[in-house]
Amino acid sequence: MIKLLEPSQTERWDKFVLATSGGSFFHLAGWQQVIKQAFGHPTYYYYCERDGQITGILPLTHIKSPLFGNTLVSNAFCVYGGILASDDQSFTALKTQAQQLARDLRIDCLEMRNRVQAHPEWPHKELYVTFRKELDPDVEKNLNAIPRKQRAMVRAGIKGGLVSIIDDNVDRFYAAYSESVRNLGTPVFSKNYFRILKEVFGNRCEVLTVEHEGRLIASVMNFYFKDEVLPYYGGGVEAARDLKGNDFMYWEVMRRAVERGCKIFDYGRSKIGTGSFRFKKHWGFEPEPLFYEIDLVTAKQIPEINPLNPKYQLFIAAWKKLPLPVSQWIGPWLAKDLG
């Protein structure tokens, strides 16, 4: 039987996610609350139940935008998602439910963001990869495993007097992150979105900030899931480049994660051939393909809503020149539909 998630069932939902192979931070029920509060998009969190037990879950978000199309995504604002099921019957039932909803809503396409190919009959975006690596329990072994040139950057940050601090709010994080995002020509999310993430996910969501002589240099929001750490949103101020602030920041995330008992460092999604792709390779991480599988409903081809699309180049160039306060004011209006 397919049901829609009610607040009284979120604990059962999360227990299933934590116990099932393939479950990720982005399958957790808290995302429904985050997306509703921060963006106001309709969500459809389906689960399959048999003999009183949850046997499959599927978080879906409906984003309808005059600028960026009409899509149903699992899961929006997340790098992973898709159907999580303990058996083929539940998988098929949830897939059928999603396809029916997609047709009822007359959307452009249904998108499943999978780490492993789950719908070989659907086309998929050959655009993204992820970077994941096992951590050694010995902190020094992790440092020595970083390729020599990148390790020198980390050591330069340490020698230069950088320190990391865990912040209990998102204020300094937002200052660094919004500046970085503006410099990339990308609309920034609202500060309220990040506040909600911390409120909803509690100690699974942590902000690490890098300082130099008391000044903000860089900051990153990390997600913790089982034995994994995912540095998800991050950025630095102008001084970060010369002080090797970002290099030091990610090392500190890794170091602290080992002390916390984490065994996997998930560097997250990058577009093939971009600066972030090369940066992660320099750390000795190898790319793993992501399967963003698309069921075309009313669309004739996969929508190209990404910064590599040539039609967005003028917009990106103009956005980079915006004063930071203006980008922080206008950006959230656009970013809420870029799921």
Rank of each mutant, 00 (worst) to 15 (best):
V210R: 01
G284P: 04
I217T: 04
R241Q: 10
I272M: 12
V170G: 00
H212L: 13
A299V: 11
L308G: 10
Y250R: 03
D227L: 07
R255V: 07
H282Y: 10
G261A: 10
T209V: 09
L197R: 03
Y174N: 00
L290A: 02
R260K: 15
P231G: 06
E259R: 15
T209P: 03
W251S: 06
R256Y: 03
T298G: 07
Y224C: 04
K281Q: 15
V210Q: 02
G245F: 02
E252F: 06
K280L: 07
Y232M: 09
V258K: 09
D171F: 01
N246A: 04
P187F: 01
F189R: 11
C262I: 12
G275L: 06
I264Q: 10
P307D: 07
A176I: 01
Y177M: 03
D227R: 13
Y250K: 02
L308T: 14
E238C: 02
E238L: 10
I196A: 02
V170K: 00
Y250C: 03
I264E: 08
G261Y: 13
E252P: 06
P307W: 09
L230P: 01
S219M: 07
V210N: 02
F189K: 11
E199L: 10
E238V: 11
A257D: 06
T298Y: 05
E213H: 11
E213A: 13
V220T: 11
K281E: 15
S190I: 08
Y292G: 00
V188G: 03
K263A: 10
D242F: 10
E259Q: 15
L296W: 07
G236M: 02
G235D: 04
N192D: 13
V188E: 02
F285W: 09
S178P: 00
E252C: 07
Y250V: 06
G284Y: 08
P231R: 09
R269H: 12
D171Q: 12
A176P: 01
L308E: 14
A176W: 00
G235T: 05
I196K: 01
F194E: 03
E252Y: 06
E179G: 01
H212I: 06
A176F: 01
V200R: 08
Y232Q: 05
A239E: 15
I294H: 14
G185F: 07
E259K: 15
G268P: 11
G273C: 10
S270V: 05
G185V: 08
V253M: 03
G245I: 04
A218E: 05
V200S: 06
R278C: 05
T274A: 08
P307C: 08
K263R: 15
E252M: 12
Y292I: 12
K280P: 05
L243H: 02
R204C: 12
V258E: 06
V170Y: 00
